[in-house]
Amino acid sequence: MSAIRYLRLALLGLTLALAALIRPSALNAHEAAMGVIEFREVRPGAFVGRWSIEPSIGASRIDLRMPPHCFLRLPEMNCGQKGLVGPITISNLGSNMSVVLIKVIPIEGEPRSYTISTANPVATVLGTGAPTLEAWFELAKTYVNYGIDHILLGADHLLFVLGLIWIVGGGWRLVKTITAFTIGHSASLAATAFGLIGVPERPLNACIALSIAFVGVEIIKQQRGETGLTARYPWIVAFTFGLVHGIGFAGALAGLGLERRLLPAALLFFNIGVEIGQLAFVLLVLALIWAHRRLGAVVPRWGEAVPAYLIGSVSMFWFFGRLARVLAAI
């Protein structure tokens, strides 16, 4: 067995140990903590607001700050002749409350949506009319950051990618495999976001856990000298499971109620953010593999199978936890 294999074992072991630390509640990472508030204009400059999705921490605990000229006392908001134009922010966004979508329904014109997240805590309302360059820039900033956050908090997605790296190794095979995974999840993310396909979130999360278990089994096969499907056709496996994971990514965008005209751009920026996060993770793993190789740091022979079994155990633990949530909802 080559040294590089041992290094991967060490990396996997560490990651799995950390993954195991994450509590089951935290593993529902893709059921984002968010709230949706609607402001409907009832006469020029005067709005009625209500929470259509109340945040889990309670609406009363959200410190919503509207533009300075607007007077807000829910359910009423009065912005006078100037109208609802200017910065909106929430001062107490945190780990319990990460995203708030603000929908503005004017008397005339299309409804508009603004997303405030911990990554982008201020949204600027620009009034009616075509989006300006500033609006596009703000959209990019919001959704690229949201995509990065989403992948970095998705322990299951990262574990799947780590499993792929372990089986495939480095070089062009890895580039092709990661590219196939990217194409797969980008396609299904777009299809889901545009409503072409729809899969309930909870069963899907259970399937994502199973995909990691599959990779765990493939690692065991490889250790026994058998050539598994992933070792033979890594890009096909990566693409297929990429489709499943992509629908999961779309769950983060679903429910945000984005304007239809902004959806393609938001989707693009969100996907760019996911790719940035994924690439950073892959580069970090490759850098650590390189470092282990340089240092000749290897895991003892007796421990080489442990991470593969851990990967299976952790993913099945996630699977049964998620399956229980599916059954509880029936």
Partner: peptide
């Protein structure tokens, strides 16, 4: 970072 990505990060 903590507010954004949680206590692990």
């Amino acid at each position: 970072v903590a507010a954004r990505l949680g206590d692990f990060y």
